[in-house]
Amino acid sequence: MFSDNNRITGIQLKRQIAVGLTGAFLLILTKEPALLGRSGLLGLLTGFAAVLLYLLVLVRAAQAYRDPELLLGRVGGTLLRLLYLSYLVLTGSFLLAEAVDMTTAYLLTGSQGLTAAVLLLAVSLLGTGSDLQRRGRMGEAAYPLLMLGFFLMLAVAAGAVNPKLLDEAPALSVSGTVQGAYAYYGACMVLSVLPFLLNHVQGKGQAFPHMARAALLVTLITGSALLILLGIFGYEGLVRQETPILKLMSRIILPGGFLDRFDILWMAFLLFSLLFGLGSVLFYGRTIGKFGTFTKGGYVLALLILAGALITWGEKDIRSFYGDALRWFYTPVLTAVPLFMWLCRKWRRK
């Protein structure tokens, strides 16, 4: 008999990673200059290899995250939680800002950003909840339909690729590849919060293959989307586009002609995945901060994310700040912290 043991399966882990990341990566990484072109695509694959190594470290370090205060002391543990929380708030704000942009530009045209942001945040908060098993089941159930949707849409879009435009892309360069790899690796820093969950995965030893499969799937979908976009808009066109992925389907005509455009469907899939991604940020925030769903801490977290997404200073907003923060601070720090935690635990055990 199954029991409510506050655990999820490896399959659920894989699926929730895939469902949470695909939409965000498609929306955000397809407009990341470092990932466009041949060097960008090679960088993506190289970055994936680095992500695999990073995942191995995360699995090794998982035990150390069971009770950081025990390992690092009260101050150290609190600082560690604050580090991850700050990263999650910024990531949540960035993701929300992107989702709001997509919503107000294509889905709820003419609506206020605040309305869309509040709705998105409320739905992701209520839909995902703070129950580990519920979120696991949600990811598992959504995965087949969502992935089938993405796959079919990309397959249809692939039919519109112009091979000549692919040839026009700039030649490979080492610096371009390195930049692309670092950009992709940096985007995958969202996986850095996984050790807080890994202790709740059935058969911890088998977590890595599931995580690696999820990362591979997300990489393949993102890579395919980048390739298809390159073949449809060309390198120059792609660089000029603000969010090319949203316009991908506007040029595609479905066989049969019963729908004139079906980019709304594409956006519906993206939105679902973004909601799950946003819900995941809230979920991890509550887990790391030890907040319940409807507690002060939970509300503060949601409000911080909302404020981060909406506040602008001059011409700047979260998007002009997040990239640099990720590149220069969070990527190196969040790479080093799990290694440190792992070594710390080893040293303690000795």
Partner: peptide, 11 residues
């Protein structure tokens, strides 16, 4: 809310 509302409802 259009399709936005429908997706939120599904979620």
């Amino acid at each position: 809310f259009g399709i936005f509302g429908i997706v939120c409802g599904c979620y």
